[in-house]
Write a protein that binds this DNA or RNA. Structure first.
Lengths: 151, 151
DNA sequence: ATCAAATCGTGCGTATACACACGTTCTGCG
DNA sequence: CGCAGAACGTGTGTATACGCACGATTTGAT
């Protein structure tokens, strides 16, 4: 018998545990878990606008802005005005940012390893699929959950 | 092929989606998603100390304190000095708190329903198990992941 | 071409998450 | 009994999450 609030609570539980552990791991490097997420997102698509960056993280635009201000102070990212849209600003990692990201990736390797050791390889794929299904379901306000496929 | 950072990102993704949706749902009631978690925890074990409450949420003791101050202002919870330990304070829901919690539970029913419609019943159990395994793995600092069983 | 509507970034306010330091009280060992 | 160390709550500081409102710019429809 499955208590109806167990699943939401379990989701909250893993996320917080993961976040805490990652923050602790990165403390020596002067960055946070969420800043790592931002850098990782940048590393997969350069010259994003702040809006697009926020959409991909996913995070709120005003949150992303605050993070960018801090990361800019550390010299890890740069912002420039968009070439064709003077409202927008494009964001890119600096050389220092790329270097830092590599360090963080290596430092967090143990966490990912630990996670994948806790579950079977097959299960990891199932888990990933279920999490994405839940996310799509929660994000889609419409009552037609049909076309959410390749997100 | 599974990108190594996909699983952590997916966990982050569901949690944030769930949190946003819950916050939006509760906005009319003047409470937050996390305050609901606190009330739900209280409803399953009365007269907890702040520390024990924080341990069960799970959250940081100083975070819980801040939340309690706000909930106390709203008259949803009460704090009293512990009968045998004058350092500690016990927390309990007021009548208004219990009533509010029932309202919140009903209001959030649609979210839980939506989640369980997004996955198969069997899968829900698998998902829950995997999430707990991951949580245990992330919380255990020791290198012996043996005795984490019935958490 | 013009003007309303949408979009972008910014700034502000509130709530959460956590680390850390502090004073108080309790516990347990000698 | 007395005292060191642990445990509890408090307070502070920083980072994140998000809603909302604002000015500036771009877009789209006429």
């Amino acid at each position: 018998m499955l208590e109806k609030s167990e699943l939401p609570m379990a989701i909250r539980g893993v996320y917080l545990a993961l976040h805490r552990k990652t923050d602790a791991k990165f403390a020596d490097y002067g960055v946070t878990a969420d800043q790592f997420v931002l850098l990782a997102t940048l590393s997969r698509g350069h010259a994003l606008t702040q809006r697009e960056l926020a959409r991909r993280m996913p995070s709120d635009p005003s949150t992303v802005r605050a993070m960018l201000v801090l990361l800019e102070k550390q010299g890890l990212v740069e912002r420039e005005v968009h070439p064709s849209d003077s409202r927008a600003r494009t964001v890119a990692m600096t050389a220092a940012g790329k270097k830092k990201f590599k360090q963080l990736w290596r430092a967090s390797e143990t966490i990912r390893t630990q996670m994948f050791q806790a579950i079977e390889p097959d299960e990891a794929n199932v888990l990933l699929r279920l999490l994405k299904q839940l996310t799509d379901s929660l994000n889609n306000d419409t009552r037609t959950p049909s076309m959410a496929r390749n997100a």
